Simulated assay, not measured.
Amino acid sequence: MKRSIENIVKRAEVSEKAIEQYLTDSVKKLGGICLKYSNPGMVGFPDRVCLLPNGVTLWVELKSKGQQLRTMQRIRITQMMRLGHTVSVCKSKEDIDRMLEPYKTADHDF
């Protein structure tokens, strides 16, 4: 029973929902806004768009550990990057920390 509870807690910590909440909180700490993105007519776009100070925009696709991008997601991400947008795929809190590291400064001047 104890092992079962530990597995549930461990899975909850790496779930897409937990990673999404961590992203939202991390962006807020930087003085930004993390919006859920949804466009019913166009599939494959990243889950979140992060608006950081000084006009920085980051697109983020969130996946829980072990999940892979769908074909349409790969196509959209490639298309967006070719247009010059910054797009990251984050599967962990560590991925989010790495993505946001360049934007962490005391005065948010980047």
Rank of each mutant, 00 (worst) to 15 (best):
A18D: 07
M80A: 02
F45P: 04
R3Q: 10
Q79H: 12
R82I: 01
Q21N: 09
Q73F: 05
E13Q: 13
K10H: 06
N39F: 06
A12K: 12
L83F: 09
E61W: 12
E16H: 12
R48A: 08
Q79T: 09
Y22I: 13
L69T: 15
K29M: 03
P40Y: 02
L51W: 10
G32P: 00
Q79D: 07
P102Q: 11
L51R: 15
E6T: 14
K93S: 08
R3M: 06
L58E: 04
C90P: 01
Q73I: 10
Y37E: 02
R48V: 04
N54F: 11
Y37R: 12
V14G: 03
G41P: 05
V56Y: 06
I8S: 03
Q79G: 03
Q73V: 09
T86G: 04
L23T: 02
D107T: 15
T105L: 09
L83A: 14
T78I: 03
K28G: 03
R48W: 11
L83N: 13
Q68H: 06
G41L: 07
G66K: 13
V9H: 08
C50S: 08
M72W: 13
M42D: 03
C90H: 03
V87R: 09
M81C: 13
L35Q: 01
V9K: 14
G32F: 12
T105M: 14
K63C: 03
G31A: 08
K63E: 00
S38I: 10
I19L: 04
V49Q: 13
V89I: 11
L62W: 15
G31W: 11
K104G: 00
P40R: 06
I75L: 12
E20R: 15
M42K: 12
Q79W: 15
L51P: 06
W59M: 08
G55L: 11
K104Q: 10
V89Q: 04
K2T: 15
L35P: 04
S15V: 13
F45H: 10
R70E: 08
P46A: 00
V14R: 06
K2P: 05
K28H: 04
F110R: 07
I75G: 05
Q73Y: 01
I8R: 14
K65I: 09
M80I: 05
S38L: 12
E13M: 14
M81P: 02
L52I: 05
V89T: 13
G32W: 14
R48P: 04
W59Q: 01
D47L: 08
